[in-house]
Amino acid sequence: MDTLLSVLELKKTYEVKRSLFSSKKEVINAVDSISFDLSKGSTLGIVGESGSGKSTLARCILFLEKPDGGKVFFEGRDLTTLKKSEMRSLRKDMQIIFQDPYSSLNPRKKVYETIGEALIFHGFTDKKGVISQVTDILKDVGLDEDFVFKYPHEMSGGQRQRVAIGRAIATNPKLIVADEPVSSLDVSIQAQIINLFLDIKEKRNISMIFVSHDLNIVRFISDEIIVVFKGRVVESGKKQEVFYNPLHPYTKMLIESIKGDFIKIGFDMKDDIAYGCPYYMRCTIKKERCRNEKPSLIGDDTHKVACFMDG
């Protein structure tokens, strides 16, 4: 299959002051050399807990945040070398959906303005045609024409997220990045929105990156999964492999927690180490080697893991 997106050794670091008055700075590797490929029409799930760098990764891929190192190729073009104007016209091919539809929609704009803005900006329609186009898009996301003139405060969370999805698909993008798109919604609404993503994916053949802390949700929608911990990929591969045959102790823990088993884990902060495996302090199968060396991601195209478990 053709590759749509290629991410190579992507890095993003933040500098934080140790304390309010200290001049010493600490460097946090939010995204630490992450690489992956996404082929056309397929969906990649990125799983990780809060602070793992998964949202930063999503934002860096779309250049909403400038990465500090590495490259992103979109249809073979290196995004790091593009001019601002070139990037702007590329934006219509790559869209993002955020977690909280309460804050990602402008409260003072009606639905047709929110969706229509992108349509007009990218030249899909003019002011006259905008209402009918928006109505069509709303139909695709399961909202009827009554919603065209509504404000965000007149809608429920699920309906708002449908509008946000409508805005994202309006420009017929090739890639949609969805950052925790269902985690602020009620359980009974989450399933509806996931089904909507599945519909869109099937109908429009859009590639997706689906970021979530919930492996259970990611598995419904993804073809491939990467598991991120402290800015590094600890496991990646085809969905069936990662979900039914997890190798990394962290992935195993995530899957057990879905089943409702609580695994007791170590929380020894003193063992937080700078050079070794990022999972060292929590790991139940750690060895001496893990303390001093970072395991690299090894394996084949169907399944890779970053762990020294075999020696």
Binding site: S156, S188, I189, Q192, I194, N216, F220
Partner: peptide, 20 residues
Amino acid sequence: DSIFALRPDEKRLKVIPGFV
């Protein structure tokens, strides 16, 4: 159903229609 179901032969999650 909306949390636990989705067997390999099913393509969509079962949902509760409507909203809260």
